[in-house]
Nucleic acid binder design. Structure first.
Length: 305
DNA sequence: GTCCAGGATACTG
DNA sequence: CAGTATCATGGA
């Protein structure tokens, strides 16, 4: 982690293959997003750190991210944890050079890595959020998924307010472990989605499920197997969590509808590619399937000014 | 009205 | 074991 503490603010120095603006485009993909805000090109987010909620804002230039604390600068240890959080959020430990080399000769990836150079997988560092967001998004369109998430966060999460703006923090698993299926049904969750979400919360609340626990298993396939043992987490969700939370660049949600639509467009065909065809295309992506998927997702939406 | 959505699970033959 | 029904609702 490459950063510098200036007491009232901090600076983070990302690797060369980084473009803050591209990340902002991704973060702007839904107007219903409640877990961060972009105001005049500045990114705001509140996160829980050691039983407190910290609001930070990020302004990015070419080679440095500047992090300010609008409410008040926190203690040194907290500042360090915020830097660590942001480092992981933007997946700054990953060296993209290998991916770009591989993509430069790949018929599918060549154009997207040129178009979106510097884009990184924007993560979901909180594994409870990653697991439950994957569950919420299953089998429904993204617009409705964001509607459900917004209701869920505003019903059970906590928030900070600053200068008239509200900054929401994702609900804690301890809170969700205690609610009933009916309370989520009222938000228009299906009974099954509600059961899955509460089940994950209860497992985490009992300490049966932790991010560190998965990471310690080391091997991608072993972690995927462990994730799929959770009720409500199938192959797609497991790969989604590996990709967005556990920094596994080889994670590949091959059944993803968004991936299929992006490939249909990139290939210029009238139908979606079959799983076998995708597997064939992806042979060249070995080790970087997660980034290939993320860049292809990016190709599905237009820039937001 | 029809069909598809960032799928997963329970049931059936 | 592979195929099928079911979930719940929004958006195109």
């Amino acid at each position: 982690m490459n950063w510098q503490d200036h007491e009232t603010y901090i600076e983070i120095f990302p690797p060369r293959e980084f473009n803050f603006q591209e990340c902002i485009v991704f973060l702007s993909r839904s107007e219903q997003e409640v877990l961060h805000q972009i105001i005049d090109g500045t990114l705001y987010k509140a996160i829980p750190v050691e039983d407190a909620f910290i609001l930070f804002k990020i302004t990015g230039s070419r080679h440095v991210l500047r992090i300010d604390f609008p409410i008040e600068p926190p203690a040194p240890e907290i500042r360090s944890q915020v830097a660590f959080y942001i480092w992981g959020w933007f997946d700054l430990d990953t060296n993209l050079r290998h991916f770009y080399e591989l993509a430069s000769t790949d018929p599918i990836l060549r154009s997207v890595v040129e178009n979106y150079a510097g884009l990184r997988i924007i993560g979901v560092p909180d594994i409870f959020e990653a697991l439950t967001w994957a569950i919420i998004g299953q089998q429904i369109n993204l617009t409705f998924a964001y509607t459900l998430k917004k209701r869920f966060v505003e019903q059970f999460g906590e928030c900070l307010t600053f200068e008239g703006s509200t900054f929401w923090v994702y609900p804690s698993y301890n809170k969700i472990a205690e609610i009933k299926v009916d309370e989520l049904r009222e938000l228009q969750f299906s009974v099954r989605k509600a059961e899955y979400v509460i089940g994950v919360a209860q497992a985490m609340s009992k300490g049966e499920l932790t991010k560190e626990g998965f990471l310690q298993q080391g091997d991608y396939l072993q972690i995927k197997k462990s994730l799929m043992a959770i009720r409500g987490i199938g192959a797609w969700s497991a790969d989604y969590v590996l990709m967005k939370c556990l920094h596994e660049t080889a994670a590949f949600p091959i059944a993803d509808v968004g991936l299929h639509n992006a490939l249909k467009f990139q290939l210029g065909i009238e139908r979606k590619p079959t799983l076998a065809e995708i597997a064939e295309l992806a042979k060249n992506w070995e080790g970087w399937q997660a980034y290939a998927t993320f860049y292809l997702w990016r190709s599905l939406y237009n820039d937001i000014t």
